[in-house]
Design a binder for these strands. Structure first.
Lengths: 188, 188
DNA sequence: GCAAAACGTTTGTCAAGTCGAACGCGCGTA
DNA sequence: TACGCGCGTTCGACTTGACAAACGTTTTGC
């Protein structure tokens, strides 16, 4: 039932993240333990990958370190990445009237995806609701479009921004040829 | 030792989130417990706000529910939001040669910010490194620009995308008048 | 209408996390 | 050199979470 990449490594990820964030904050193990209100022995075990912290313990450490929960459980991976306008894999709809290019997906723990959308008028793209907690941001670059939740879309033009919950039916309808937009789809 | 706003509420948030996501998935308490490999008594206690789950337990539930960690610890708040091209607060640099408009900030637990950038040629915007783990995505809409880490920027044009770590010095230099770009700044 | 099953809760036992204290280590100082 | 301080680790006792089993309740099916 587990094909996930990190069943028990969650602990080791937290171990390294904890140490990384603690040092970034310039705190000693004892000092952080004091501020978070946990025993330094506990913190020592966590950073060494031993043990399986409770939520309250981890939360106290998050608060003391001023970091988010996700910062401790998701490993980083920073690299410069360029995708030219004529490169990248595109996700075409039925016709070539709606083309979405994935610029930056968010594996493995989904968070947000970044798309470049090129759409033609004449067809309405009705998207089924995505998973709960999904929210989409759209910035229109070229053209005009009707965007938003189904039944109450908003017309936007170049430079306009719209954000809307995407866990309900929503639409994207180009009103001019070669309408281009940048879309960020994120999971809460 | 706890003055934080949510010492035990973390548990209650998880309790409600857990039940919400479980029902959204159409699973019974016993069924979810079976899939996640945890005792249903444990799950029952968690959903009732009793107890303080360990990371491994919560992780198993996240995997079984196919949700992210953040989905269980952060309450949602979905609303449609529109910012017209001539609206919104802008962050101007020295002159009017670089204008960044905040489209979507990410309070309170910083995650990602969404900007619309309008820049003029002639000045190089050199940004100091942001907090560790920050990564920026840029999609160019109009014009041309040199973007990327300092010392090794990349020239991009309309439709081009570039992502780069922003916890090191980086630059944004417009090469044409009225260069427009969408930028997503996110914290890992 | 009753038996069988499923659901969610409660209880008791065992394992494990948390804590405080003691320990070894390195460093600055008298 | 010896002392004191802070660091991070290890050890024993206590507390608590995870589990399996039994419970009462509701729903399904014969």
């Amino acid at each position: 039932m587990d094909q996930n990449p990190a069943p028990l490594s969650v602990i080791s990820v937290i171990a390294t993240s904890l140490q990384r964030e603690r040092r970034r904050a310039g705190l000693s193990l004892a000092e952080l333990a004091r501020r978070a209100g946990v025993a330094k022995s506990t913190l020592s075990q966590l950073e060494s990958g031993t043990g399986n912290p409770s939520i309250e313990t981890l939360w106290a450490l998050c608060v003391a370190l001023d970091v988010t929960f996700a910062q401790l459980v998701e490993p980083p991976e920073p690299k410069v990445h360029v995708i030219r306008a004529d490169e990248g894999s595109t996700i075409a709809a039925e016709h070539a009237e709606y083309v979405a290019k994935v610029l930056s997906a968010s594996p493995p723990n989904a968070r947000r995806d970044l798309y470049l959308i090129t759409a033609q008028p004449g067809t309405v793209r009705e998207a089924a609701p995505h998973r709960s907690g999904t929210y989409e941001h759209v910035v229109l670059s070229v053209g005009r479009a009707l965007v938003g939740v189904q039944g109450n879309p908003v017309e936007i033009g170049p430079g306009d921004y719209i954000g809307y919950p995407a866990d309900v039916p929503h639409v994207f309808e180009a009103l001019e040829p070669d309408t281009v937009a940048v879309m960020v789809s994120e999971h809460v």
